[in-house]
Simulated assay, not measured.
Amino acid sequence: MIVTVVAGNPKPASRTLDAARHVAEALAGRAPDREVDVVTLGPSLLGWGDETVKAAVDLVAGSDLVVVASPTYKASYTGVLKCFLDQFAGATGLAGVTVVPLMLGAGPTHALAPELLLKPVLVELGATAPTQGLYLNEKLYAEPEAYAGWVGQWKDVVLACATTTRSTGGS
């Protein structure tokens, strides 16, 4: 199983990337195989046809399980993540990929953002999102207790989906 994390934070090497790594490791029992720190793709995200961006898109689309993470900005996910997701081909760009929508925020006000805002765009791109999205407090994200309940509830479902979705062709 190929596990990838995607971080859509405007700052490179962010807490968002770190949180995605923690969640991926808790699910898979090992570090992720691949990482895409979206902001490092730079201005190439604003156009079409850039080979570096295409390689990142292909890397994600070729994964079995992807943790897609964003900080909460203006009550939603970031524009840099949206620019990256726009690079995927329509309703099939993430076909066969199991995703976990993950967002970080300062408090509980936006706890439904991963479910209401990030998950629908991932599903629109063809991904399978078999569980609730995960919202973590940005100050507590590194504490295993912050995500242990979610992982305990959903790990088996996520892993079962990730090991079967690619072979069956998607949701």
Rank of each mutant, 00 (worst) to 15 (best):
V3T: 15
V5T: 15
A56L: 13
A148P: 07
S167T: 14
L104F: 01
S63E: 02
P130Q: 06
V97E: 11
S171H: 15
T92K: 09
A91I: 11
G42H: 07
A20L: 05
G149S: 05
V60W: 10
Q153P: 03
L112E: 10
L122M: 07
G90H: 11
S44P: 08
S14N: 12
A95G: 10
K139C: 04
V121Y: 12
A106L: 08
F84Q: 09
S171Y: 10
W154V: 03
L117A: 15
L140M: 05
V53Y: 11
Y77W: 14
L134S: 02
L125N: 08
T168C: 05
R166Q: 13
V39Q: 07
V67I: 13
E138H: 01
E35N: 05
P12Q: 14
R166M: 03
E143D: 14
P130T: 03
T72C: 00
C161A: 15
A89T: 14
L17R: 11
S171I: 15
L59G: 09
W48C: 06
P120R: 10
T168Q: 07
P71H: 05
S44C: 11
W150L: 00
V157T: 14
L117M: 12
V57C: 04
W150Q: 00
A20D: 11
G8Q: 14
G79A: 09
P32L: 05
G96V: 12
N9V: 13
M103G: 00
N137P: 00
A106Y: 09
R166F: 09
L125S: 07
V80C: 10
L85Q: 12
P43R: 15
S63F: 04
R34G: 02
A148R: 11
L27D: 03
L112D: 04
H22C: 07
P130H: 10
V38S: 14
A31I: 07
K82F: 08
T109P: 00
T109I: 11
R166A: 08
V23H: 02
R15P: 01
Y147E: 01
L65A: 02
V121R: 08
V158A: 03
E115Q: 12
F84A: 13
R30G: 05
K155L: 04
A95E: 07
Y73M: 07
